[in-house]
Simulated scan of single mutants.
Amino acid sequence: MAVEPFTSGASGRINALFSVRALRALMMLVNAVVLLLLLPFRGQKRAAVGSSGEKVGKDEKQESGRKASSSAAVVRVPAAMVPWRSAAVVVDQEAATRRALAIRRVVQDNDDATVREFSLFVSARGDTLFTQSWTPVSVKVRGLVVLLHGLNEHSGRYSAFAKQLNANGFKVYGMDWTGHGGSDGLHAYVHSLDYAVADMKIFLEKVLAENPGLPCFCFGHSTGAAIILKAVLDPKVEAQVAGIILTSPAVGVQPSHSIFVVLAPIISFLLPRYQVGVANKKGMPVSRDPEALVAKYSDPLVYTGFLRVRTGYEILRITSYLQQNMNRLRVPFLVLHGTDDTVTDPQASQKLYEEAASTDKTIKLFEGLLHDLLFEPEREAITNDIIQWLNCRV
């Protein structure tokens, strides 16, 4: 069966985001916004000219006002110009629908070897975040793994992986970060990845409080790996974590031209939620397993739309920060990357391995593999590598 390749992640979409065609479209939108902002001032100017050219008495104005009110003229506002509150309601409803689906999947997961549960917690910003856990039934828990998914996906996609960790004595916790899965926010819109970093720190504290005395590891994929990396650069988090596992980490995502680094913050400020329609879904497959691709992109909790401008800028911002602070990383880590990954750069993972100050560090580059390593045909071997690394550190 011929299957159209799909894409996910950040790199190629960011290149498309800042293409010449995309910039022209954005500049046209900026011009339109400026003109709309100027319309009220132009109207006031014309009104002033009219009042100076025609002397209308007070009685005449009152009479005209009475006539206008008696005619009961109705001003109709187009749907596109409904106040912002209505748009917020739509976003809240959409997030509630996603959350209900995420909860239903947890409740309906009947596995004799694993107890799967969900919980909600409120962030410092007032957003409700969806989290879940996988606990082994008959295997003694020897350690913890806190899992962060990648851009556009959700923690539930890693259920099979979590259950494999359960079978080896690891209790797993997953968090859907802002705008993803069952958590609040416009789907796949990230106003600031620092929010996700702060949420991850709070979630980590909750996990440690529930499981005192157990070693805790963090697993992150793609942008989720970038979030974990920035979190563990905090000395307080570094002291709480026994090690981190990173698959296809987003530490090497760059736009196609350096000028876009200057333009990105401006465009993301003016049109943060604008979706760029030039991202090419046929250019960057993320897995060589056709069934895994179909399962991913038929999942309503996986975002398949075009990258939002602010989200793209936030990815550029966190990768730039990590590039400048790799030498501050001191926790033990395992990084895994496919050499044919076209979403994030495997050479950046090599640079992370070389520059990190960690004395316990391991890198594995898989020849010919793509971005979603745990959904490649070789997923069992990759999972075994991760479990072996964990077993040696418990």
Rank of each mutant, 00 (worst) to 15 (best):
C216V: 15
V30P: 11
N152T: 14
N15G: 06
A16Y: 13
T128Y: 01
P215Q: 05
I14V: 13
Q240D: 13
E238G: 06
L233G: 08
E60V: 12
Q350M: 13
D127T: 03
G65K: 11
S64P: 02
S71M: 11
Y195H: 13
E4G: 03
E63S: 14
Y321F: 07
K163Y: 03
F269L: 13
V141I: 11
A198F: 02
L144K: 06
N280E: 11
N166E: 01
L148T: 13
A79T: 14
G181C: 11
L373D: 09
V146F: 06
L229T: 10
L37C: 11
P346N: 08
V335M: 06
L352C: 07
T131I: 02
L352D: 06
L334C: 07
I318V: 12
A209R: 07
Q324L: 13
Q275R: 03
D199A: 08
N211W: 03
R24F: 04
L101M: 12
L129R: 03
V34Y: 10
A196D: 14
E367F: 09
F121Q: 05
N211K: 07
H180T: 02
V278L: 12
Q164W: 02
L271V: 14
M284I: 06
V237S: 14
V251T: 08
L263S: 04
V190P: 05
P249I: 15
T114Y: 00
I14H: 11
D372L: 05
L165R: 08
T319S: 07
V253H: 09
V75N: 11
D59V: 08
V232Y: 00
L374E: 02
R288F: 02
S52T: 12
N166Y: 03
V197F: 05
F121S: 12
L35S: 14
A73T: 15
A196R: 00
K206V: 07
A88T: 15
V237D: 09
A100V: 00
S11G: 15
L204I: 01
R116M: 02
D372G: 10
V91C: 08
D345R: 05
A32C: 01
V56W: 05
F375Y: 11
L229A: 10
L334V: 07
I266Y: 07
P215H: 02
E63I: 05
T311P: 15
V343K: 06
V343W: 00
E291F: 10
V91M: 13
T383W: 00
E153N: 09
S358N: 06
T383C: 04
Q108N: 14
Q347C: 04
A2R: 14
A73R: 12
V262F: 12
D289L: 10
